[in-house]
Structures are given as structure tokens and as C-alpha cells.
Nucleic acid binder design. Structure first.
Lengths: 238, 238
DNA sequence: AAAATGTGATGGTCAGACCAAGCTAACTAA
DNA sequence: TTAGTTAGCTTGGTCTGACCATCACATTTT
């Protein structure tokens, strides 16, 4: 533990320290489970104040590189599971009820998309919607339900607005809620009627988009999303 | 900013603070872009030492909830990154014509927000809308126009939906278009009538939200956004 | 040998101080 | 009057030194 640590000089002391220790871990000079010297000693090694050293260690702990054990010391962690999750994901994971906020946003975007899709859809857009619809129809006969077909259908509508942002954002939102979407799909298979109902709703949306009826398409989509939402909430309370 | 912060007592002070601030963001009591009081003041509010407060802020920064700007202050960040993902932002910055797509999305979200705001607004929401409105009124007399007041008004509407995601996403979108928004603002000042027109539109939106008229509010907002869009396109082609 | 005691090590917290770098406003010089 | 300058304030960044609570471990006592 003699001179592995280089003196700090130029800018943003804690970040420099973070960088150095990260490098040492990467180079294997600091092994997982290894104990670092106490704060005071470390600060002296680096030639910085204890506050700066502490900040650095805190950042490293937040990032998951080290673990601070009270009255024990600072230990290098195995960085096998780098779960660097995004702030929004943290909030969503914290409390499931936040997913309803996300669903609200999805509705905002999808309802607007459906309206515009009905106005601007081309025949090629229609066939893109039809593909997952057909597959879902076949599945329904066997009381199956494939979430990916459902997603594909909704994305096809977003695509029909000819605004790539709507597609990507919707996809991002659906990915965020993926776990729970899967749960809903699972439940739907149990009650076979649900599968047929969704299929029927999708068909009606498709028809409205096909005949270029923005208001109709929009309200069908609203009905559909609201139905799913209620189903979802019902499952959630069980 | 009086008593949003609760005194800290029990265990692990910095983590308590982190939790409180995360909650405040989730509840929408801290808006994206909002500036927190300086460290010393915050520490006093929480009743803790500056070191502890600093640790908390550092953790929040590492997690991506706040941004620390030297000699400026601590700012709440938009937590919508998985939705408005980096690659998406890159694409947007690459090609100016994509901004029209972005504006479409903004309309989707703001129209839905305005509708819901008119349904759910509280009196406190109204006063948050009123503040930038009043400032804009005073500015208009002097043929001034402050973009930040405009943004604040729109964000206040999003806030009135009581869905923090809407606020964060809208802020994100507005930030992305910031340069161009600034350009529009500049042009508007040249033709004084534009400033008054915007003020008038804002007022009408406010009134509709106040009297809980979702459809009215929505269509006023649509009129407003469409007008700005046309103005913008007109400038763009010059 | 077992129990009680004490001492030191360690992270947690606080208070106060100084610095550098921006911002603002008052001031000075043209 | 105007433009440039200066002085002071604010803010995050950093350092120092101090005190606390708790645990580990060695020492002492029974």
C-alpha cells in the first residue's frame, strides 16, 4: 500500500481520486474485498483534506465500486453487477404507483398519434399494422397472446404518423414498463375473453385508421388503453 | 421555499436528505431546472452541517438527479433520459429539420396536459401559472419578452396535471429547442404585436384552465402553439 | 479461565475558515 | 453621458481540527 496512490494536483480533487481508484481497480491493483486504509490515512496519501477524500469515497460508493462499513473500513467491491440505473428508473422502481404516471404519458402520446395516423396513413402503413393483427388473430384461436405483436401493432400506428420521434419515444416508454406489461399479458391469457377483447379493439382501431376517421380511431384507442389500464389496476390490487 | 424541507433527525443524515429531495422531485414540488438554495442555506434548512448536506448533494449528482454548477448553484435535472434517450437527442441535434418533429411531439404532450390541467388544477396551480403571466404582462408594456417566463408558464400547466413526468419531458423538449426558441423570442420582440398576441393567448388559456374548461383550454393552447409554429416556420424560410 | 474494563481505531458529523471565480453595482475616468 | 474599472458579495470547493458513537481487541480483575 506504499505508493500506489499518486498525488493530486490539477482539477476537481474528488473526481481525480475517483478516477485513480477506479483505474486501480480496473488494473487489478486493488482486489475485490481488499480493505483500503482509513480515511485519514488515505487523505494523507493523496495529499488532500479529509473532506475531499470523503467525497471521493462517497461517489465511489454510490457508483458501487466500494463499500463503506462503519467502524470497519472501506472495502473494494466486486463490480460484477454494474447496475447503473437512470434516475427515472430509480423513481419508477421505488414505487409501482409511479407507473401510472408513465401510462398517462403513453396515453397522451398514443392518442395523439392515433389521431394523426388516421389522417396520414398510407397503404404501406396499413399493411404494417395488419401483420401483427393477423398474428394476434391466429394466436387468439389458441388462447395465446404475444406481447410483441401487441407492441408491434401500437408501434405501427406511431409509425403511420411519419414522425420517427413518436415511434422511438413510445418504444422507450413501453420498454420502461416492460416488466409490468409482461405481467398483464400473462393475466390476459388466463381469461381468454380478454385476448379476444383486445383483438377486437385492435381491429376497430385498424378499421378507423383505414377509413381515415381520426376521431373514431382516437376514441377507439382511448377505449382500448383505458380498458387495459383498468384491467391492470384490477390485477394490481389483487 | 419555506418549509418544504423537513428537519433531519434519526439515522444516516445524507441518505435522509437524498430521500427527501428525491421525493420532492417525484411529487413535483421541485421542478426540473429549478434552482435549490445555496449549500449553506440548505444545510441550515435541514438543520445539518454543511458536510452532510454536501454529501447528500454529491450523491444526488452522482445518481443524476441534480446538477451542480460552480458559482451558480444546484439545479434539478429532468429525469426523462430513458424516454428522450441520448441517441434520440443526437439525431435531433444533427438535423435542424427534425425540430419540426419535436414540435409535433411537444404539441401532443402540451395539448393533453392542458386538457388534464383544466380538469385537475388546484388554486395553487393557478397561482403558479399567474406569476409568469403577470411578469409577461409587465414586460409587454415595455415591448419586452422573456423566454423564461414563457417557459415557466407552460411548465406550470404541465405541473397542474400533477404528473411529474409531463413536466420533466416538456422541460427536456424545451431545452432541446432552446436555441431556436431564443430565436423566435428575438423575432417576436421586433414586431411588438406578437408579444401582445402571445400574452393574450396565454391569458385565455389561463382563464379556461381557471374555469375548468378542458376543451376550451385545449383548443386555446392548440391555437397558441399553432400560431407560434407558423411564426417560426415563417422566420425559418426567410 | 472467564468476566469486566479500558483504550484506540474508524466512520459520521459539525463548525469555521480560506480560496477562486463569477456577478453586480457603485465608482471613476474619458 | 458613457465606457471601463474596481470592490464586494455570492457560491461551490477545499482544508483543518474537533467531537461523537461504536466496535475490536488487549489489558486487567475476579
Amino acid at each position: 500500500m506504499d505508493s500506489v496512490f499518486n498525488q493530486i494536483r490539477p482539477y476537481k480533487i474528488p473526481e481525480e481520486i475517483v478516477h485513480q481508484i477506479k483505474s486501480l481497480i480496473k488494473e487489478g491493483k486493488l482486489q475485490p474485498g481488499e480493505k483500503l486504509p482509513p480515511e485519514r490515512t488515505l487523505a494523507e496519501h493523496f495529499g488532500v483534506g479529509r473532506s475531499s477524500l470523503r467525497e471521493a469515497i462517497n461517489i465511489l460508493e454510490t457508483l458501487g465500486f466500494v463499500e463503506i462499513k462503519k467502524r470497519k473500513g472501506i472495502y473494494i467491491r466486486s463490480v460484477s453487477s454494474p447496475i447503473m440505473s437512470d434516475p427515472l428508473i430509480q423513481i419508477l422502481e421505488e414505487d409501482e404507483s409511479n407507473l401510472y404516471k408513465l401510462y398517462e404519458l403513453r396515453k397522451d402520446i398514443e392518442l395523439a398519434s392515433t389521431y394523426m395516423a388516421a389522417e396520414h396513413r398510407t397503404s404501406s402503413d396499413l399493411s404494417k399494422m395488419l401483420k401483427p393483427l393477423k398474428r394476434m388473430e391466429e394466436d387468439a384461436e389458441r388462447a395465446h397472446f404475444s406481447l410483441s405483436d401487441d407492441v408491434e401493432f401500437h408501434l405501427a400506428i406511431a409509425q403511420a404518423t411519419h414522425n420517427f420521434l413518436r415511434v422511438h419515444i413510445l418504444k422507450n416508454i413501453l420498454d420502461l414498463a416492460d416488466d409490468y406489461m409482461g405481467l398483464i399479458a400473462w393475466k390476459l391469457i388466463e381469461e381468454t375473453t380478454g385476448v379476444f377483447l383486445i383483438l377486437d379493439q385492435h381491429k376497430k382501431i385498424y378499421e378507423a385508421v383505414k377509413k381515415k376517421d381520426p376521431h373514431g380511431a382516437r376514441s377507439m384507442m382511448e377505449e382500448h388503453l383505458t380498458w387495459v389500464e383498468e384491467k391492470w389496476k384490477a390485477f394490481g390490487t389483487k
